[in-house]
Structures are given as structure tokens and as C-alpha cells.
């Protein structure tokens, strides 16, 4: 699903240049649930942003489902993001003047899906994350866990090939984190490919594979026995 070869990225800061990714080689098959770990500043977010086409690498190859991602203009990139990728952020990033339902429907709107179908689909995904009754509430009326569920529903709405989550439990307490991870695991069970950036061990162990980044290179990449989150959730 994802193939990257010899990926490099550095940030230019005045006259200094910070080499963050120093040659990443990395493949993800369809249906995998991968945790990306590493200390702060090791380049996890940078990698995820490049995978998400929010940022571009300096050099290296990137194939998404066989499609080369290179020299995309902004329109094309937006189109690919919309069709292939779903994002879940640490800070939820819901649009605050839109209701939960409208937020979830947004990716579908950008796809040009009609109003009625859009709302039906969005409601279906909200139901999946257990927030059907909250569909007409604004983000400000939801708890952190509820907001992140809305964000998960939104990321799912366009039925992307890959879900990318950066510290999706970073702003949540552990119980709520497990609830969200339970959700992620269930989505993964349906066959979705998911990448999760985290620095929490317990969260990482709820995935099926852990990739360790250190100083811009992958130092460890192992498959693990998945811990089901459901056992921590009533």
C-alpha cells in the first residue's frame, strides 16, 4: 500500500539546515496497523506529513497504492488527499462553527457528493463511532474523547485507502485513549490500513507492528502481538 525508498527531508532555518529524515525505507501492506515511535524530535510527524502529502520530501521515492507521489501541484495533492487519505490529529482539528455531522460530511462535500447522500453517509459513520445522538452539536459542546471520535468518523467518511493518525490519543486520558484505540482496532479489523504516530508504549502495543525512529532513520521494525483495547473498555 505504501512504499518509500531512501526518503530525505531537511528543514532550512536561516543559514542552518536541520536534516530530519536521513534515508527512510519503509513498506506498509494493505490492512496493516502500524505504530511509529521515537523520541521527541525524531521526525515522526515529519514522516507522517510527507506520507499525507501535506509536506514534500527533498529526495526519495514514494508510491501510494502503486501511484507515484511526486511533483504534485496543490490541486492534484488536494484531490489525492481527499480520495486516498484520512487524517486524525492530536488536537482534533474540527471546524468549530460546523456541527459534528457537517464536520464528518466535509470530505464528501469536497468529493462532490450530493447533500442528501452526504448526510446519510456522515450519519452512518457517526453512528459507528457511537455519536449518532450528538450529530447536531458543535465541537465546543463535545468532550475531548467525543471530538476525537468525530475526527475518526470524518477521516473514515471518504473511505480512504490509508488512515494517518498523529498522536491521536495525546490529548486524552488513558480510559478515553483506549476507547479510541478500540475504535481504531475495529476499523482496522474491517481491512483498513492505519498508521499511528505515538510515544506511548501501551498505545503502540495495541497496533500490529512497531517502527522505531531515531535521529532520522528507522532503528527497529517489528511485528507484535496485538493487545486488544476492548478489554479495558466497559
Amino acid at each position: 500500500m505504501i512504499e518509500i525508498k531512501d526518503l530525505h527531508k531537511s528543514y532550512q532555518m536561516g543559514s542552518n539546515s536541520l536534516h530530519v529524515l536521513k534515508g527512510i525505507d519503509f513498506n506498509v501492506e494493505a490492512g496493516e496497523l502500524v505504530a511509529i515511535m521515537g523520541s521527541s524530535g525524531s521526525g515522526k510527524s515529519t514522516l507522517l506529513n510527507i506520507l499525507g502529502m501535506l509536506d514534500v520530501a527533498d529526495s526519495g521515492e514514494y508510491l501510494l497504492d502503486g501511484l507515484p507521489i511526486k511533483n504534485l501541484n496543490e490541486t492534484k495533492a488536494a484531490n489525492y488527499r481527499n480520495k486516498f487519505l484520512g487524517f486524525i490529529f492530536q488536537s482534533f482539528n474540527l471546524i468549530n462553527y460546523k456541527t459534528a455531522l457537517e464536520n464528518v460530511a466535509l470530505p464528501l462535500y469536497y468529493q462532490g457528493v450530493g447533500r442528501k447522500e452526504r448526510q446519510e453517509k456522515a450519519l452512518k459513520y457517526l453512528e459507528q463511532v457511537g455519536l449518532k445522538e450528538w450529530s447536531h452539536h458543535l465541537p465546543s459542546e463535545l468532550s475531548g474523547g467525543q471530538k476525537q471520535r468525530v475526527a475518526v468518523a470524518r477521516a473514515m467518511a471518504a473511505e480512504p485507502k490509508v488512515l494517518l493518525a498523529d498522536e491521536l490519543t495525546g490529548a486524552l486520558d488513558s480510559t478515553t485513549s483506549y476507547e479510541i484505540m478500540d475504535l481504531i482496532q475495529k476499523i482496522n479489523d474491517l481491512g483498513n490500513t492505519i498508521l499511528v504516530v505515538t510515544h506511548e508504549d501501551d498505545i503502540a502495543h495495541m497496533c500490529k507492528r512497531i517502527v522505531h525512529l531515531k535521529d532520522g532513520v528507522i532503528v527497529e521494525d517489528k511485528k507484535i502481538e496485538q493487545v486488544r483495547a476492548s478489554q479495558y473498555v466497559q
Binding site: 499525507g52 501535506l54 496543490e74 490541486t75 488536494a78 484531490n79 489525492y80 488527499r81 481527499n82 480520495k83 487519505l85 487524517f87 482539528n93 474540527l94 471546524i95 468549530n96 466535509l106 470530505p107 469536497y110 468529493q111 470524518r154 471518504a158
Partner: peptide, 16 residues
């Protein structure tokens, strides 16, 4: 700015 960033991440066309 942030909202526009979110919308672009979700795949809204710059033209839109």
C-alpha cells in the same frame, strides 16, 4: 488559516 489548513488536509481544492 488553521481552518483552511484543515480543509485542505481533508482535500478541498485550492480553487474552491
Amino acid at each position: 488559516t488553521k481552518e483552511i489548513g484543515i480543509r485542505r488536509a481533508l482535500g478541498e481544492d485550492p480553487w474552491s
